[in-house]
Design a protein around this nucleic acid. Sequence first.
DNA 1: GGGGCTAAGCTTTTT
DNA 2: GCTTAGCCCC
Length: 727
Amino acid sequence: MAKKSFGQLNPAQKEAVTHGNGPLLVLAGAGSGKTRIITERIAYLVSSKNVAPRSILAVTFTNKAANEMKERIHGLIGQDARSLWIGTFHSVCLRILKREITNLEGFGRDFTIYDDGDQLRLIKQCMAELNISDRTYTPRSIRSKIDGAKNKGLGPEDFRGDIYEKTVSYIYDLYEKELRRANALDFSDLLHVTVRLFIEKPDVLKRYQGFFQHILVDEYQDTNPVQYKIVELLSKKHRNLFVVGDDNQSIYGWRGADITNILGFEKDYPDTSIIKLERNYRSTKTILEASNKLISNNRHRHEKELWTENSLGESISYYLARNEKDEAKYVCSQIRLEAVKEGYSYKDIAIFYRTNTQSRQIEEELLYSSIPYRIVGGIGFYQRAEVKDVLAYLRVIANSQDEMSLRRIINVPARGIGKGTLQILEDIAEKNGVALYDALDLAAEDKTLPKSSAVKLEKFYKLVTELISYSRENGIGELIDRVLQKTGYLDILEREPERRENVGELFNIAAEYENEGAEGDTPQPKESENTELNEFLDRISLASDLDTYNDKTDQVALMTLHSAKGLEFPVTFIIGLEENLLPHFNSVRGGEIEEERRLLYVGLTRAREKIYLTSSSRRLVFGKEESPTPSRFLSEIPEAFITANMYQGESRRTSGNRSEKSNLPLKTPVRQSGNGKSYKAGQQIEHKKFGLGTIRKVEGSGDKAKVTVHFARYGTKKIIASYLEGK
DNA sequence: GGGGCTAAGCTTTTT
DNA sequence: GCTTAGCCCC
């Protein structure tokens, strides 16, 4: 089966797929068939090299990518695909930790995973306990310090220096203690603790080293130091490390990703082979050329230039809007056009933006225009208060030590356990050296507590213990039902249909999970009591909104440029190309322009056929109106590839046909072949690339006039006058 | 202890 | 402009 598909691979691709043993770096440009290489390689290893699927580890960047890869490989090699290890770094580490974490002192198997919200709350709590004001040090900045440390494998003891460093150290230290006490791991811990495990327990590492004969890593340009370490450790024995990436698409520097991992791969693995995939199968020549030109402004990169045999395609549209509303309206009207006149489906179209907030205006306008859409990412389903509440109940049931969740639900719905009572409860816990949950049971005998409060606590304790025993005999769906009824949460939902719907959806997810689990390919140790519930909660913790994105329903996709990585669409819009937005203010200030440029590069290279770029001359920032200037990146794309427009609304008649081009941010073209000539409809002209054509329409005058030309070979195009030769 | 109101801070990007 | 946290009154 695999053999048949080899025929369709180009020589470089084939070389990568059939590479022998030893390290290999595949520098794969956008749209060069990166994912395909990995899937084909795995199929090749299994069917031609007789490598056991269970000894192949493939790491992807998102769960969605992992699932797609699994499916594709399943199509190539069948059932064998099930025993492959495919997942994100986080999910693979989770799987390893679930088996091995008890080898480490102070860690339990049924740990809870804290998401960044939980993390932030815990940091705040720690800061309060240490009497550190959250004004001088924001919990967010502390979190990024702690995360940064974990990503580099540093502990609290590694912060020594000035007062700030010492403060971070105290908080970090307490934070870690609290995590252990709650039997919880944060996101970074999943990786960090795995490395610790490997280093402290060499025998465990040895087992996994022997186990994974082949390791494949996708999106290698976005690995951080811990991930690098994991890969290094695991591949040490067999040394069959196959990494694929594109340094031009490294956009996660802020999350600790270290672009030198890919730039310095040859140094780390001196015997490595390198294969470059430079042929692009996705985009038109125009799109590819424009992207190449843009990214060539970056200095830190592997030299490579993408090319394609695809057609030239249409020029990139640029629209300068009057304000955000106008920008949104323009986007919607163009979508309409593409759908009605050009025959595109809504699912062929995507809108990308730098920050999540930008989706709001667009969303409003899409609703108004009745264009079906779907926001990918953003404020996710699992962040909603009611969903988090129900999940917090489940988490406490699965791991009663999980204090963060316990605090969340102890008075939701209101049951008379307020701040005062909680304080006393904390004291009881501390006095007796037990967890908050166990302190509930001691409350009845405590003298410091008012009788009425003691009764309430006791009642709550009974409620939870009852639910815990219920959970052992019943499925997750039934458990959710039970929780809702017994806790009185149902009454809250009665009054709020939207929330009820969300909780209903959570119920559906649970039911779906249970069905799928019945087929069973989860070889988990059965030592813990609530395996199924635990696995469900784990899955949810790592699930992101992107994973559920389904490209089959006919909806326009809205997402950030970061989320867009790895996807492709025939028609794309990138909005808000303004200074301080793209490139973002913080990056301009921090001098991280190259990453911003890569971000736009990622955006541009998602498109197969058409790109629309927009910026706005007015924008509300923090509720204040600003007048941003168009992004510097616009002028880095040669004008020849761009057709520019601007707002021509109500004022058009009064201001006459005033030349709008003078305001456009594009720099004047280098070539001046059309100098001084004038054009009119009907005239024959010649263009260097398109050949002979007839002018249909002229807008503006002089070199910068936009001329609509019908070319015999390429159809109708809008072109800047200076690129034409009169006939 | 609960609920409602006001003020401040916020927004980069995500596993 | 919107959301959250903290404060005050019932």
